[in-house]
Write a protein that binds this DNA or RNA. Structure first.
Length: 207
DNA sequence: ATACAGATCGGT
DNA sequence: CCGATCTGTATA
C-alpha cells in the first residue's frame, strides 16, 4: 500500500482520526523497520477544544508544530516520562492533531520487545505481547518515537503512514476521549475511535 | 524565580 | 488508588 501524501492529511482532525484506522504506521530506525497497524485514535480540534494543547489558539514553542502544515509529527513528553505521538491535521494556522493511542505490532516485534522490556520477544508472556503497543506511551517506546521525531515530516522516508483497507463500519467504535477530565464540556465530545475487534485497544467501553 | 499540573503507566 | 518524574506554562 502507498505512503500517504500531504493532501491526505489536509482534513479536519476528526475526519483524519477516523480515516487512518487500519493504516500502518512505519518508523525506519537504527534498529530496523518498525510497523504498527493503527487501531485507536483521538481527535484534538484546537481552538474550540478545551482538551487540546492548542485550545484558544495557544501558540507556544511546544504547540508550534500544530500551527504548521499538515502531515507532520507532534510528539510531546507527558508526566515527565512518556512520549505521545500526534499527526498534525487540517491546514497551516489551524492547530488540530490526531493522537495515536494504540497500534497492533506488525513488523519488528523482536525490536519492540527489546525497547519496551529490554528482553527477547521469545521470553514474553501473552500479556506482555499485548502490552507492547496498547497505549500512547507504550507505542512510542516500542517504536522508538521520542522528542527527536517532533516536527518530523510524514511525507519524508523515516516516519510515515501506509494506506490500507479500511475496517468495516460496524467494527468501529466512536466514544469519548481518555484522561481529559479537566476539559469541561469537551469531556463529552465523541472524538475517540477504535477498532472493536482489535485486542490492542487501550481502554474499552463498558458493554 | 517559583509553582504546579499533566492527551500515562505500572504496581498495590 | 498512588507515585514516578520533569517539561511546559503561567504568574510575578
Amino acid at each position: 500500500m502507498e505512503k500517504l501524501r500531504r493532501e491526505f492529511y489536509s482534513k479536519s482532525a476528526l475526519e483524519l482520526a477516523r480515516a487512518i484506522l487500519g493504516f500502518n504506521l512505519v518508523h525506519i530506525t537504527k534498529y530496523g523497520r518498525l510497523v504498527g497497524k493503527i487501531v485507536e485514535t483521538e481527535a484534538y480540534m484546537g481552538e474550540h477544544d478545551k482538551a487540546a494543547h492548542s485550545y484558544n489558539n495557544r501558540r507556544t514553542k511546544r504547540t508550534e508544530v500544530m500551527f504548521g502544515p499538515p502531515g507532520h509529527a507532534y510528539v510531546y513528553l507527558i508526566y515527565g516520562m512518556y512520549y505521545c505521538l500526534n499527526i498534525v491535521a487540517a491546514e497551516t494556522n489551524i492547530a488540530q492533531a490526531v493522537l495515536i493511542r494504540a497500534v497492533e505490532p506488525v513488523e519488528g516485534l523482536e525490536k519492540m520487545a527489546e525497547l519496551r522490556y529490554q528482553k527477547s520477544l521469545l521470553t514474553c508472556s501473552k500479556k506482555e505481547i499485548l502490552g507492547l503497543t496498547n497505549g500512547p506511551g507504550k507505542l512510542c517506546q516500542a517504536m522508538n518515537i521520542n522528542k527527536n521525531n517532533n516536527g518530523q515530516d510524514l511525507c519524508g522516508n523515516r516516519l510515515f503512514l501506509l494506506k490500507a483497507e479500511a475496517p468495516p463500519e460496524n467494527d468501529i467504535v466512536t466514544t469519548t476521549r481518555i484522561n481529559i477530565n479537566y476539559a469541561e464540556e469537551a469531556i463529552y465530545f465523541p472524538y475517540r475511535f477504535y477498532i472493536n475487534s482489535s485486542p490492542y485497544v487501550s481502554v474499552r467501553n463498558k458493554s
